[in-house]
Design a protein around this nucleic acid. Structure first.
Lengths: 113, 113
DNA sequence: TATAGTAGTTACCTAATGGTAAGTAGTTAC
DNA sequence: GTAACTACTTACCATTAGGTAACTACTATA
């Protein structure tokens, strides 16, 4: 295997790590919502209008497991829970920007055809 | 809805467009493989060691539908087929780079813990 | 005639993803 | 007391994604 193939294999591995974390319909939208500030369960649900509480709960847990977000419980009345991005979550900033940029570009191209 | 919320909604929409195109385990790896030059079916299969011919065939079709890649048939003996990135495919360059960069960063962070 | 290389297809199965609807548990306001 | 708001959870179901294995069809070579 030449150096070119080795670099290719390395890139394939690294991309898989990223894909495992962002896989699915909802994780990237949830992260985007949280770049606009710490939010409560209901607030995220209002941002992402068509997510069900089941999926939101499930995906928040997966993001917490991967240390992308943190869950903070406040002992107020009624109980409130706040979700926020960790430094690792914020490190996805450039990636999110490119996902956004390419989406805009893609839509433009598709409309033209 | 304030201007902040409107921008958030816009970003959520654009990200969905991108996600629909790159969704799944294999599309990004296939695109990465093709950034190393035009390739035949068997060559892509050798790059991505654990993809089955069924999934490769299926995902190549989906990428062709979205105009990310082109399929060219050569009437040689035996018949050969070449897959290559379209300009739209090449426009994912920065996105691919960020997927790669973040994957490397994420792996580093995970090893440290 | 048999084997290997070209590029897939087909049938069958399991697991993961995602959706719907209803329920839970606590507090607050009317 | 009852409705509403907080943040979920649970049960059930349908669809999609993905894996395995075998098969197709054509050509070239031994």
């Amino acid at each position: 295997m030449g150096p070119k193939e080795e670099v290719c294999q390395f890139k394939l591995l690294a991309s898989r790590d990223t894909l495992e974390v962002i896989q699915g319909k909802w994780r990237i939208p949830i992260i985007i919502s949280l770049t606009y500030g710490n939010k409560r369960f209901g607030e995220i649900q209002r941002d992402i209008a068509d997510i069900s509480p089941k999926m939101l709960s499930q995906e928040l847990k997966s993001l917490e497991t991967n240390k992308i977000i943190t869950r903070t419980l406040y002992d107020s009345m009624p109980v409130t829970v706040e979700y926020s991005l960790t430094p690792l979550g914020w490190s996805m900033n450039k990636l999110l920007e490119e996902i956004l940029n390419w989406g805009v570009y893609f839509r433009e191209k598709m409309i033209k055809d």
